[in-house]
Amino acid sequence: MTVYDAMFWFFSLALLLCGVLVLISRDAVASALFMVLGFIFLAGLYLLLEAWFLALIQILVYAGAIMVLFLFVVMLLDFREKRRWWHGNLLGWLGAPLAVAALLAALLPVLKRAGALADAPEKWFEGTLENVMTPVFTRYLLPVEVTALILLAATIGVVVLGRKETKP
């Protein structure tokens, strides 16, 4: 096992652990903080893939901006409901591992047979800003523009659903 492999396993397992902790931690603030930690480990995986720009954006935008906003809302609303760690019902506790097991059962044989694909000579792609943004503004321009419409729809939605009730 090379250092690369070791780091891959470390980041992956830590990411999974953080995901589980988000679900079972006692209060919402702790969940949100575990999510930040998970994002950082995910950025580590991106670094291993030489996706520098993506790793940076992952930390700046997700762990920085979005999660701060998230925490701000959680603390503002103050729903620090103290829950026991086994909260939830039996169905959920049995169902989730079953679903994960089913997904793995479908995935593992596929990955085993795909060994030839992994041995194929790889087209190396370095995730620099230029390499990432050139397709965004050429080939994928249309989806990017449509994203603007999504944001418009979401903005209208927030205003409509969040405004004060006016009595006619």
Binding site: P143, V146, T147, L149, I150, A153, I156, G157, L161
Partner: peptide, 21 residues
Amino acid sequence: FIFLFVALELVTITFYVLNSF
């Protein structure tokens, strides 16, 4: 598929609002 996904999300997100209007 990228374009399909984005257009599909435009429809879905709009319906989140329409359904709970």
